[in-house]
């Protein structure tokens, strides 16, 4: 058997240590080894954004990152977005403005939108649309997703 790689990482602030196969993707480890299934796998080629996570502050598709690459790094997933029972303003606005239908793309959109607002707290609608262009949704037509993100941004600026 091929030699495995020892990985030490934090996920949502918790320390994890595991052995990964050299070719194993981060999304595979998150979902199948750490059982953090909130991150979704829609295409495995970086085209749908359902597996979006933040690694050391950078938004990435976790299907395009090897688990071994995250050794010593910090990974943020949808499971770490709420603060205990307090939802992130993005999560709350998605709920209130119906920014989700089936919900499969929702974790990816939320993570991507969080990364956007950390960089640019006051995006125009066009900026938000281009930032989120790496995330596919087939249900909503994007209207209510964009509205949810803009409403959360406004709320966070006011906070």
């Amino acid at each position: 058997m091929a030699k495995k790689v020892h990985v030490t990482t934090t996920v949502n602030g918790d320390e994890y240590e595991y052995l990964a196969e050299a070719g194993q993707t981060l999304v595979d480890v998150l979902r199948n080894e750490l059982e953090l299934t909130g991150t979704k796998e829609g295409c495995s080629t970086g085209d749908c954004g359902a597996c979006s996570v933040i690694v050391d502050g950078e938004l990435v598709c976790s299907c395009l990152v090897l688990a071994a690459e995250t050794d010593g790094k910090s990974v943020e997933t949808i499971e770490g977005m709420a603060n205990g029972d307090e939802l992130h303003p993005l999560q709350r606005n998605f709920l209130e403005l119906n920014g989700l239908q089936c919900g499969i793309c929702t974790p990816g959109f939320l993570v991507a939108a969080k990364a956007l607002l950390e960089r640019n707290p006051d995006p125009t609608e066009t900026e938000a649309r281009f930032w989120l262009a790496g995330n596919l949704c087939r249900c909503t037509g994007y209207d209510k997703i964009v509205r949810s993100v803009m409403a959360a941004a406004e709320e966070m600026r006011g906070a």
Binding site: E41, L87, L95, E96
Partner: peptide, 23 residues
């Protein structure tokens, strides 16, 4: 009226179980 969907919270927190999420 427009109440929040009962299945919504699980979907914004990553808890909702889809076809690939069962073990």
């Amino acid at each position: 009226s427009n109440p929040v969907k009962h299945d919504g919270l699980d979907k914004v927190t990553g808890r909702a179980k889809f076809g690939a999420d069962f073990f």
